[in-house]
Design a protein around this nucleic acid. Structure first.
Lengths: 150, 150
DNA sequence: CAGTTGTTTTGAATCATTCAAAACATGGTG
DNA sequence: CACCATGTTTTGAATGATTCAAAACAACTG
């Protein structure tokens, strides 16, 4: 290995957003870096929330650009799109692993939940009605800590 | 028990739609009977599909009426509303039990899947992040029998 | 059978998302 | 290092699902 020092230890993709985008076969642009940054700060954000965040960092960016970025990222496997019932689509960077979500029935906040049994697909239906199962998606609903005292 | 004969054997609610609606505290109307009928024929239907079905049975019914009926039914606990990612809301009569769904990734057809472990809530997350879990919703994704040969 | 209340109609607004054409910037090439 | 091809963003508008609101109407109560 032709590396030296300590900085090189960090995972390249996670540490360098630009490299991560490039590695996905996409061109590196300011809006894309800004969206990726926004997703790091808000791990479960809507297109609109990301538009707000990106607007601060990069004024003039259009909402459609954010949608475009998210679409490209999702297609490239850089981000995952989830769609909990009753709210707009949410985007998250955590991808490739098999984790699920818990959504607050009151304030709609979302948190990650590790896979229920430890591996993907972590569940197998008893009767698949002839379907060939590809994935299992689990959404837990409940009250978040903040909404329990109301 | 003050019943006699054989007809009384059937469950009142399931056998008599009007009684079922009345038992839910709602007024019995033609659009409501038609929507309930439509849901019996198509166990996982969108508001629009039900509007089509109702239109045949009761021409002149408005789409908004169907939405209104479905809203009232959902609030009353007569039907359940599910929202698989990527499609409009679906409504089903099967309610009160704990069953899940499998959705075809190709044609979006939906089938019921019995509860994975047999009772509600049938799953418990390992780390709830402080949430008080109320329900677990499971959606399986895969290819339906028809879409496997393409 | 008349009144009250809940329901449906009619018409329009809203939200999230996508489409399309033109202007523009990235990254490879000469 | 400038240029070019392609991919990306902007701008402007359309779409689909759903909800809102006021007026007309119909179901159950007494």
């Amino acid at each position: 290995m032709h590396t030296h020092g300590t900085v090189d230890q960090a995972a390249p993709a996670a540490a360098d957003p630009a490299a991560e985008i490039r590695a996905a076969g996409l061109k590196v642009t300011a809006p894309r870096l800004a969206v990726l940054h926004g997703l790091t700060e808000s791990p479960h954000a809507t297109a609109d929330q990301l538009f707000e965040a990106v607007s601060l960092e990069l004024p003039g960016t259009s909402l459609q650009a954010v949608y475009g970025v998210l679409g490209a990222f999702t297609t490239a496997g850089l981000v995952r799109r989830i769609e909990p019932a009753g709210s707009a689509a949410l985007f998250e960077r955590r991808v490739g692993d098999n984790h699920h979500h818990i959504v607050c029935t009151n304030c709609h906040s979302v948190r990650d939940v590790e896979c229920v049994t430890g591996q993907a697909p972590c569940l197998t239906p008893s009767d698949t009605a002839g379907f060939v199962v590809q994935t299992a998606e689990v959404t837990f609903w409940g009250l978040c800590p903040d909404c329990q005292n109301l």
